[in-house]
Design a protein around this nucleic acid. Structure first.
Length: 294
DNA sequence: GCCCAGGTGAAGC
DNA sequence: GCTTCACATGGG
């Protein structure tokens, strides 16, 4: 028997779904006929942006929508976040370019595994790898009639049971042993990802750094995108470029100094500021290449 | 062909 | 301590 479609509406202001879902924090959203579709935990979801908020659809028996409100962080008042940013010209420009960009609160395991697969990969490639991984090792989830099949993100236990070659077949290359080792550690109970948010940010980061394939940058992604630590500041090649160009007159600065600068300059919502800088730099690059080709 | 991509771990000074 | 390098794979 086909399951019923259930609908709700989130009356959120200042929420740019397209910017949020394509800004390199989540990798499984697809634009389908004007709506954004993905799988959150074991549920198929469709989100449609409108002038007054976000319309949402899912399938089956869901008693409430707390899980989706939590994922979207619908209660966050964006103006309060933006007001916490430093009042400098680079941040003003980034906010102007990315209005409505938000941070999600994702499942820690999916976030951790996804970012282990992200190193020296373009976002389009990360999406491809994760898509293969879910098709092959995720669980099938119910979708409305006529939709393409959808899959959950594979559990740590499932990936722990894969061989390195199984994982390499998903095009992840040298990242396969890292993902496998971390899946085995999590599946074996060696770390409880769900309780990281109960720790201090320093303790949680220390724990994440014990995992194979996880360094400072990927740890900070998990802290920010899945554990709710808004002071975490993932420093990748784009953000390093942004800080050098916008704050250090393009001079070469060591990573250590950039971390010190970020920690002291961007305030309690530093992670949010980081996401604005990241998305701003990528949008600028996209505009430039478009201009050149015209 | 060449350089680069939301880096990390290990080896070399 | 720090710097350098290998590591797969695909886009531009």
């Amino acid at each position: 028997m086909p399951e019923l479609i259930r609908r709700t509406f989130f009356p959120v202001q200042d929420f740019d779904l397209a910017a949020t879902l394509t800004s390199g924090q989540a990798f499984r959203w697809e634009l389908v006929e004007g709506g954004w579709e993905s799988v959150i935990d074991a549920r198929w979801v469709r989100l449609v942006p409108g002038p007054a908020g976000i319309a949402a659809e899912t399938l089956g028996q869901t008693k409430d929508w707390d899980w989706l409100a939590h994922y979207l962080q619908a209660q966050v008042e964006l103006p309060r976040v933006l007001a916490a940013f430093p009042a400098d010209e680079p941040m003003r420009a980034a906010v102007a370019a990315c209005r409505g960009l938000r941070l999600l609160r994702q499942n820690p395991w999916e976030c951790l595994a996804s970012f282990i697969l992200s190193s020296t990969k373009q976002i389009v490639q990360i999406r491809h790898i994760i898509s293969l991984l879910c098709e092959r090792y995720g669980e099938r989830v119910a979708v409305p009639p006529g939709r393409r099949p959808a899959f959950s993100f594979p559990a740590p236990e499932r990936l722990a049971a894969c061989s390195e070659d199984d994982l390499r077949a998903c095009k992840m290359g040298f990242r396969a042993p890292y993902l496998r080792a971390t899946a085995q550690r999590i599946a074996g109970g060696g770390m409880n990802l769900g309780s990281l948010s109960d720790l201090s940010v320093a303790e949680a980061r220390h724990d994440l750094l014990q995992l194979s394939g996880v360094g400072r940058k990927i740890a900070d992604c998990v802290l920010l995108f899945a554990c709710g630590f808004q002071e975490a500041f993932p420093m990748d090649v784009w953000v390093i470029k942004a800080l050098r160009q916008l704050y250090f007159q393009r001079r070469p600065i060591k990573a250590r100094r950039l971390h010190q600068f970020a920690a002291s300059h961007f305030g309690p919502c530093a992670g949010y500021a980081q996401q604005y800088l990241f998305h701003y730099m990528r949008m600028r690059k996209k505009l430039e290449s478009k201009r050149v080709s015209l």
